[in-house]
């Protein structure tokens, strides 16, 4: 897993561009997907350290993408931030979000700064977990 690489999946170009601009200006690398299927494939092939995924997308929605990734041995640990315009996700039980690996749900319109600080925090946690595992081994 590349802990500098973030996969952004949203069918709306302005969201993709804003989030990627904000992350890149903080020194992170970004790959982008336009729908759920593309997100799934990129996540499997590129091993990003974090997924930022919109709930509402054509084909697979954000939740389905995350749930399917849980089935993939090489991608099941990727944490996710879910963006939502409809409020779907905000009303979901924590257990259901956990099952999909969704750590944070952010309502649109969002503050790009907030998305960045969540992303940095989650990537940092992942680093710490990996380090802890290495120590255990």
């Amino acid at each position: 897993m590349n802990n500098k690489l973030v996969l952004i999946a949203d069918d709306e170009v302005h969201i993709r561009e804003v989030v990627s601009y904000k992350l890149q200006s903080a020194g992170l690398e970004v790959i982008m997907a336009r729908d759920g299927q593309e997100a799934l494939e990129l996540a499997k092939s590129e091993h990003p350290g974090l997924l930022i995924v919109d709930y509402q997308m054509p084909g697979l929605n954000g939740l389905e993408v995350c749930l399917q990734l849980r089935q993939e041995p090489q991608a099941q640990r990727i944490p996710a931030i879910m963006l939502t315009a409809t409020g779907r996700g905000l009303d979901m039980a924590q257990a259901e979000l956990d099952r999909a690996g969704i750590r944070v749900v952010i309502a649109k319109p969002f503050s790009p700064r907030e998305v960045l600080s969540c992303a940095e925090e989650l990537l940092g946690q992942e680093d710490a977990e990996v380090a802890a595992e290495k120590v255990e081994k």
Binding site: E17, S111, P112
Partner: peptide, 21 residues
């Protein structure tokens, strides 16, 4: 151009979300 647009857009998003807050 895309980068400049994105920067402006990010700032506008930031401002909007602050005003909502």
């Amino acid at each position: 151009e895309v980068e400049s647009l994105s920067r402006n857009l990010a700032e506008t998003y930031e401002e909007l979300s602050f005003i909502y807050k």
